[in-house]
């Protein structure tokens, strides 16, 4: 349905097919969070990989920073319809985390947990093969608290609610268990190119 009188910004803003349907480009970096912004001191921070309820390995801040650090530049897409291109991140790829824990594919699904009680689910296949990391830096600087610092998940090929801020654990689950937003009306998988915003998209 054409909207009377609407022409769009007319910036020809498609950027060679990098903007998924229904998204628009932003230059700033909006902050969207469901609750208060947690304040997590790196001296108290740790990160756990669990298989079911059992911890398989726990790292403290210095141990985690000693893991191989990888830099990536990615486009990111928020379900609220903004997209940001060429964002620069540095952190530990999920395959490097699993290798350090001596794990391969305990199960096919992961439930990601955060310090503020947030959670989100991602299939393991979407976390491997250079697709995802636990990011410790953004644009060359320690990750700001507003953007999930000290550490957040980065899964840039899915809507950005999957890139959990203030991440504290990856938990392998036998089934695909819905996380915080997935239980509150948002899509179980969240592919921006298929506009999987809400449960029934």
């Amino acid at each position: 349905m054409v909207t009377r009188g609407f022409t769009g910004r007319g910036s020809g803003g498609d950027q060679s097919g990098r903007i998924p349907p229904g998204q628009h480009l932003v230059d700033n970096f909006p902050v969207l969070t469901a609750g208060p912004t947690p304040n997590i001191d790196t001296s108290k921070w740790n990160f756990t990989v669990k298989v079911g309820p059992k911890p398989a390995k726990v790292w403290d801040w210095s141990q985690f920073n000693a893991l191989p650090q990888t830099k990536v530049k990615k486009d990111i897409h928020c379900v609220t319809s903004w997209s940001k291109l060429d964002t620069a991140w540095e952190g530990v790829l999920i395959e490097d985390i699993l290798a350090d824990a001596g794990l391969e594919r305990p199960t096919d699904f992961v439930l990601v947990h955060s310090y503020d009680g947030y959670s989100t689910n991602v299939p393991l296949a979407d976390l491997l093969a250079d697709k995802a990391m636990v990011a410790l830096k953004y644009a060359g600087q320690p990750l700001p608290r507003d953007h999930g610092g000290p550490a957040r998940l980065l899964v840039p090929h899915l809507y950005f609610w999957k890139s959990a801020k203030w991440v504290k654990a990856l938990q392998f689950t036998t089934r695909d268990e819905a996380g915080f937003w997935e239980l509150r009306g948002y899509h179980i998988y969240g592919d921006p190119w298929r506009e999987q915003r809400y449960t029934h998209d």
Binding site: T3, F6, Q23, S81
Partner: peptide, 12 residues
């Protein structure tokens, strides 16, 4: 909102 050329803009 949909423009005559099919371009769509979505906001919440």
């Amino acid at each position: 909102l949909t423009a005559p050329d099919g371009y769509m803009a979505m906001r919440s």
